[in-house]
Each structure stands twice: as structure tokens, then as C-alpha cells.
Design a protein around this nucleic acid. Structure first.
Length: 490
RNA sequence: GGUCGGUUGGCCGAGUGGCUAGGCAGCGGUCUGCAAAACCGCGUACGGCGGUUCGAAUCCGCCACCGACCUCCA
């Protein structure tokens, strides 16, 4: 079980060897979506990043409990006293019960994550289902003197906290600097300091999502939800907390503060943050209105998209960059990813048709080592993919008769490719539009036979007519040494 | 303004003090009736200016530009 996995810990800003505190069990918590809109490319990044981590940890033999929440309440448009809840706002807009919004977008999220072949987490709790746990933490923080009640709301006392602990331990922020450089916003009179954050908010009369508490009828603060749900399912401390880099401050910093007061220490040993997807160099996000939803990617229905991009192309595109780097969206980059993925998949298909030779010219053990090294080095998926392309090259050379695999090595390579490409990177063979139906296969095999006869008779008119005719139906003929094959092109 | 990060060949994107990922595009070739596809081969790039070093794209300094966060965001 002693793995050589190193992960970059945002807390220490260093790559550290991963040592779970209760091996073989691993607790992993990742901040999930606030379900008030369709999932976009930005949502795909953490989902895929931590899916890779989840898969790899499991492969290493860990029993992973992966918790990824659904935020269905408490995520405010802003933190002013009259800040509106994102879900409630959407519900009012569409004249729906908030939970209808939640249900709808949660299902949408699942649909698209599923398309991206992102595994379901072990537990997917909803914030609204954990009000009691959240209120218990509020009370505990008040009891310890680090939160105060104000007009029915409860706020975390950041300045008080910072006197005993370090508010900024994760983000590197210095509270004094923050306070100095920020002027007080209007309508924050309830708070002692502008950086205090809400643990519990009193609901305005018009507010539809509300729960009773001894402070007021209200709703929980966003930061508190993750602390409550993580504690409930993973305990007061657990191994890895993940999320997008944009959540680092204040969200994760606040989680640490809450947990430190309530439980005596920060929640996680390792903090992992994925970087952003950018578009023309700028973060793709709701605030800038420059996001493209996953549905739009899959259908091509967005003015910035030249065509539809399959879920696996999106997944591969994301995995081709390291998770801590920004990845810039463009049609050109996606096309490169699509073609690259195709090359990889065709190589793998070819691998099944290679016969072993007497010699062995390829060192599969070395490839295996390199692949593991790549993942162990802070989940370096782009390097892993580069090694896999080396294998594809060898496969193609073998296919060309320029290189030979021994039986043993061929089996080993097949196993290895299966492990890294399908199990760990989570790529799937591209669905060829039911192209594998027996009828279609039979018809095309007949047509290709006729074409071959025509070619044998040097009847180029007929053979070209077949080729062009099929092409117009979206079927591409590929002439090879051993006859022709076909593929349905979208 | 503060904090942090980035700047790599036509594009995307890794990485290391010397052994110069990978994908896409491009070029040349093989194959083919022609084409397509496929395969093979080819590209010596690391923002600028200094410094350290036998040697730096990789370390240090300065400058320029870009981005993220600074109580909405994956």
C-alpha cells in the first residue's frame, strides 16, 4: 500500500507524498456545483480532475469515500444583508418551487457528468438535507466565542479568529492587508468587520427557502455547508479536500476557520485545487457570461463552436493539460484533441489485431514504470498521455511489421493500455452511431465486396460511384493493404 | 493597489541545469487506378535584459506583458 503518489498540497505549496491517515481508507471531499444553471465546461474540469484521482486511488488499493456535495441553498449572489440566494432567485424567475430548480439542474448535472464518464462519488449530499448539522456547528462556534448573533443572523468573527489562529493559512492572505485595501460595502451594518462571513442568515420576508432556528427563520451560510457535510460523512478530519482554485479564497479559507474553531483543526491534510478553463485567455465563468454549457459542446449549438464536440473529446482535451495549469478553450485546440484521441483509439484497436512475434523489440515494463511515474507525479495526465502515444507508435510499427512483440509482452501491453486508457483516464471507445449493427455490417460488407470486384475489373466508374455514394451518406471507406474498411463519420 | 501564478516552435501543451515530451497543423515519403485513410520520416522553441555556472529555456535579479483571487463563480 505504500504508494509513491505525490500530490501538490495547496496548504504547503509543495508536492508531498500522499499518506492517508487511516489507510487503507481515504476520505476525499470535493466542492460540488450550485445547481441553479446548466453545467458548463468549467464544471467539467474539477469533475474530471477528481475523477482521475478517485480512480487512481482506488486502483492503488485504497478504499476511497468520495463525497461531492450539491449546493442547493445558501449560495448568495453577494454577501450584503439583503443578498439573494442563487437558487431562490432562479426559482422566482421561473415561478417554480426552489426544489424543482434543484431537482432539474441536479439531474442535468448528472446527465452530463455521466456523458463525460465521470464516476459518481460515493456520497452526494445536499446542503438542505444537513441543516441540523450546520446549526450544531453554528452553536459550537458561538459557544467558543468566535461567532456572534446580529439581528437574527450569525457571523463568524474573523478578526477574533485571526488573533488566535491564522486566517490566511491556505490562501496566503493577510487579514490586515485585506482590511486595509477593502472599503466597507453598503448594507453590511450587521457585521462587525467586513470580512466576517455568515454562518446563518435570517431570511427576509420574501425569502422562500427558510428553516427555523433559535436565531431566526433563515438559512445556512455557504461556507458552513461544506464543513457540515464533510464532517458528517468523513469525520472532523479527513485526507483530501479538493475544488476549483477560485474557491480557495474565501470559501476554503473559511472552511478551515470554521473547522479549526469547531473541531480544533483544519479539516483536511491535503488541499488540491484545479485551475480554470479559459476562453481567449480569460476565465470561463458565469460572472463573465462567457461560458459554454456542456450541452452546447455536445450539440455544437453555440456561436463560438465550429461543430459539436463529443464528451470524450472534451474529457481528453482536459486531461491533456495538467490540472493545475489553465487550459485554454478554442476550436483549434479541440480539433487537435479530437484527432489525437482518434489516433490513440485506433492504435488501441489495432493492438487487438497484432500477432506476437518471436523477438521482442519493445520494453513494456519500462512503459509501465513511466506511466505510473507520470500519475504519481501529482497526476500528470499529459505526460501519461505522451507515453501512451509512444506505445501507439510502437503498435503501429508492429502493425507495419517493423517491430515485434513477444506473446508475453503483447499481453502485458494490452493489459496496460486497458488499465491506463480506460480504467484510469476514463476514456471510452467512441460510439460509432450503432455502426456495429449486424444488418449494417452485412450490407456494407456486401457493397465493399462489389466494389472490390469492380476494382479488380478496373471498373473505376463503379468503384468511385460506391465510394462517393457512401461518403454522401457519411460513411468513409478506408482502403488498406488487406481490403477496405469503413467508418461512420458524423 | 495587494497576494499568487503564468509567458515554450504555426496552434495546443509537458518538462528538465547538460541526454532537446506528446498531440494538431505543415513538409517529404510509403501505399493506392486516383484519392482519402493509414503508416514512416522531418521541425532544435522556451517573453526581454543582465547575473550565477564549464554549461540555463530550466537557478537569481530587474523589466515587459497576460491571468486568477481580493466576501457571485468549478
Amino acid at each position: 500500500m505504500s504508494s509513491k503518489l505525490k500530490i501538490f498540497n495547496t496548504l504547503s505549496k509543495e508536492k508531498e507524498i500522499f499518506k492517508p491517515s487511516r489507510a487503507p481508507h481515504v476520505g476525499l471531499y470535493v466542492c460540488g456545483p450550485t445547481v441553479y444553471g446548466d453545467p458548463h465546461l468549467g464544471h467539467a474540469r474539477p469533475a474530471i480532475t477528481f475523477d482521475l484521482l478517485f480512480r487512481y486511488l482506488q486502483h492503488l488499493g485504497y478504499k476511497v469515500r468520495y463525497v461531492r456535495n450539491i449546493t442547493d441553498v445558501g449560495h448568495l449572489e453577494n454577501d450584503a444583508d439583503d443578498g439573494d440566494d442563487k437558487i431562490a432567485q432562479k426559482a422566482r424567475l421561473e415561478k417554480l418551487e426552489p426544489m424543482e430548480i434543484v431537482q432539474y439542474y441536479t439531474e442535468r448535472y448528472h446527465t452530463y457528468m455521466n456523458a463525460l464518464n465521470v464516476k459518481s462519488p460515493s456520497i452526494e449530499p445536499r446542503a438542505s438535507g444537513h441543516i441540523i448539522e450546520q446549526l450544531a456547528i453554528v452553536e459550537s462556534i458561538i459557544d467558543k466565542g468566535f461567532a456572534y448573533e446580529s439581528n437574527g443572523s450569525v457571523y463568524f468573527d474573523v478578526e477574533r479568529y485571526n488573533k488566535e489562529y491564522n486566517y490566511g493559512i491556505l490562501s496566503g492572505r493577510v487579514l490586515e492587508d485585506l482590511l486595509r485595501s477593502t472599503r466597507a460595502l453598503d448594507g453590511q451594518s450587521e457585521k462587525k468587520s467586513s470580512f466576517d462571513f455568515a454562518l446563518w442568515k435570517k431570511a427576509a420576508p420574501s425569502h422562500i427557502m427558510r428553516w427555523p432556528s433559535k436565531y431566526s427563520d433563515g438559512f445556512p451560510g455557504w461556507h458552513l455547508e461544506c464543513t457540515a457535510m464533510a464532517t458528517r460523512y468523513l469525520g472532523k478530519t479527513f485526507d483530501i479536500h479538493g475544488g476549483g482554485m477560485d474557491l480557495l479564497f474565501p470559501h476554503h479559507e473559511c472552511e478551515i476557520a470554521q473547522s479549526t474553531v469547531a473541531h480544533g483543526q483544519g479539516p483536511a491534510s491535503y488541499w488540491m485545487h484545479n485551475n480554470m478553463v479559459t476562453i481567449e485567455g480569460q476565465k470561463m465563468g458565469k460572472s463573465l457570461g462567457n461560458f459554454i454549457t456542456l450541452e452546447e459542446f455536445f450539440s455544437g449549438g453555440h456561436k463560438l463552436l465550429n461543430k459539436a464536440w463529443s464528451p470524450m473529446t472534451i474529457r481528453f482535451f482536459i486531461l491533456q493539460a495538467h490540472y493545475r495549469s489553465t487550459v485554454d478553450f478554442s476550436n483549434e485546440a479541440l480539433l487537435a484533441a479530437e484527432k489525437g484521441l482518434n489516433r490513440l483509439m485506433e492504435g488501441i484497436e489495432r493492438l487487438n489485431n497484432i500477432s506476437p512475434g518471436l523477438r521482442n523489440d519493445y520494453n513494456v515494463d519500462e512503459l509501465e514504470l513511466k506511466c505510473y511515474d507520470a500519475l504519481n507525479d501529482d497526476l500528470n495526465s499529459p505526460v501519461l498521455i505522451a507515453h501512451l502515444f509512444d506505445a501507439v507508435k510502437a503498435i503501429n510499427q508492429a502493425y507495419d511489421g517493423k517491430l515485434s512483440f513477444s506473446k508475453e509482452n503483447l499481453d502485458k501491453l494490452r493489459h496496460l493500455i486497458n488499465l491506463f486508457v480506460f480504467e484510469l483516464l476514463g476514456l471510452k471507445t467512441i460510439n460509432k452511431n450503432n455502426a456495429d449493427s449486424d444488418v449494417l455490417n452485412g450490407v456494407l460488407s456486401l457493397i465493399l465486396n462489389i466494389r472490390q470486384e469492380a476494382k479488380n475489373n478496373k471498373d473505376w466508374v463503379t468503384s468511385d460511384k460506391i465510394r462517393i455514394g457512401l461518403a454522401s451518406l457519411g460513411i468513409e471507406i478506408k482502403d488498406g493493404k488487406d481490403g477496405a474498411s469503413w467508418e461512420v463519420k458524423k
